Amino acid sequence: MESQRDDVAMRWCVVTGGRGFMARHLVAALLRSGEWRVRVTDLAPTIVLGPGENEGLLGDALRDGRAVYASVDVCNLDQVIKAFDGVDVVFHTVAADPSKNNLQLHYKVNVEGTKSVIDACKICKVKRLIHTSSSAVVFDGVHELLNVNESLPYPDKFPDAYAQTKAEAEKLVMKANGTNDLLTCCIRPSSIFGPGDLILPTLDRYGRTQFTIGDGKNYDDFVYVENVVHSHICAERILSTVEGAKRSGGKAYFITNMEPMNMWDFIHMVQGELGHKRLFKMRLPVLIIKPISYLVEWGCKVLSYGMFQPQILTPARIKYVTLNRTFSCNKAIEELGYKPTVTIMDGLRTTVKSYIQLQNKDFS
């Protein structure tokens, strides 16, 4: 393939929302590659390094200039333009918290923020924009998804504000492809897990009360965080070639571990790896739990999402955890050259090991 890459070594890229869960892994991978200087942007006024980061790759990179931090609100175009100056590639990972079903919040961050990112890319002559979308953009909360591919259209209605606004943002990114010489691509990860996620603390907290909502037969497609990172890097590399830009520019791709499994088996497997022995199993029928979910969502709104986090018991989350949701990666394999590099089991063991080590440090 003929390459469109510049000959200049160590080009600059930006990772928006760079202190988020997946984004931290992406930043690390970009630095490890030796190909990039990384500008990490997020809302915090300064970067606060977590356990191990100061002595690790990111800390070293911040000290020697291979990485810099910029406080940026993606809804502030002037701030975004300043952050994108001199940058070749933008990885846009910013999104509002999916657990907060607040349409105004999600529209501002996911849609208006993405508009600002696209506009700044055009103004700053950024070459490639890789957007972190979601497999939720094709989910209506009513119909099951079984090995669906990218030909599935967006639904007329969405189960929550997150899915609705992520779909709108994705449309904007795909439409921007080819304007002002900008090339774009959208990555649609399925259910992401890995070191630093919020799944393990929750499952650890409730590890002995193992329950199932619904009939417990629904399958999901999980994906280890490093595989999601790998897909973003694959997309950027493909867009940097003439042939790849023609084929993949303006497209979206589902990304999974290609190991669909029963969702509740996965949860119980995680709890088993954490060392929790089942005291009892409980099955909660949807007809019983659904009214409770509306009370939970109402409570979240009353408390402004401050003290009371909704976790799993909201109407939208009930839909996500009781219906089959699996996706085909064939298009990503054929067009991006994507292939999972870490299996679910290996990823799970790494995640649990990292979580336990962090817990031990906290209590030492």
Rank of each mutant, 00 (worst) to 15 (best):
M307R: 14
C186A: 15
Q271C: 11
P291R: 01
P285L: 04
L323F: 03
D181Y: 05
D42W: 04
P340L: 08
I233D: 01
H232T: 04
L323S: 06
P159D: 09
V137Q: 05
T41E: 03
S293M: 05
G194H: 01
S99K: 10
Q210M: 11
V48F: 09
T132W: 00
N110M: 06
P201A: 07
E35F: 08
I130S: 03
V142Q: 12
P201L: 05
S191C: 11
Y338I: 08
N101F: 01
V223P: 01
G244P: 00
L198S: 15
K122E: 09
S248Y: 00
T184Y: 00
A70M: 13
A120N: 03
A163G: 10
L30Y: 02
R247W: 02
V142I: 15
G56W: 01
M307P: 07
D42H: 10
I312D: 11
N149L: 04
A169P: 05
N324A: 12
K100Y: 14
I356K: 11
D88C: 09
W298P: 02
R188N: 14
M258I: 13
V111F: 07
Q357H: 13
E150M: 08
N110V: 05
V117N: 00
L145W: 02
N102P: 10
D42L: 07
G250W: 01
A67K: 02
E226D: 13
K246P: 00
E144T: 13
V242K: 13
L49H: 04
V14L: 03
I123V: 12
L274W: 03
S304L: 13
K331F: 07
K281P: 07
E334N: 15
R66L: 08
P340Y: 06
P189N: 04
L239I: 05
D346W: 07
V242R: 12
E226P: 00
K331Q: 15
E150S: 08
G141I: 04
G272A: 14
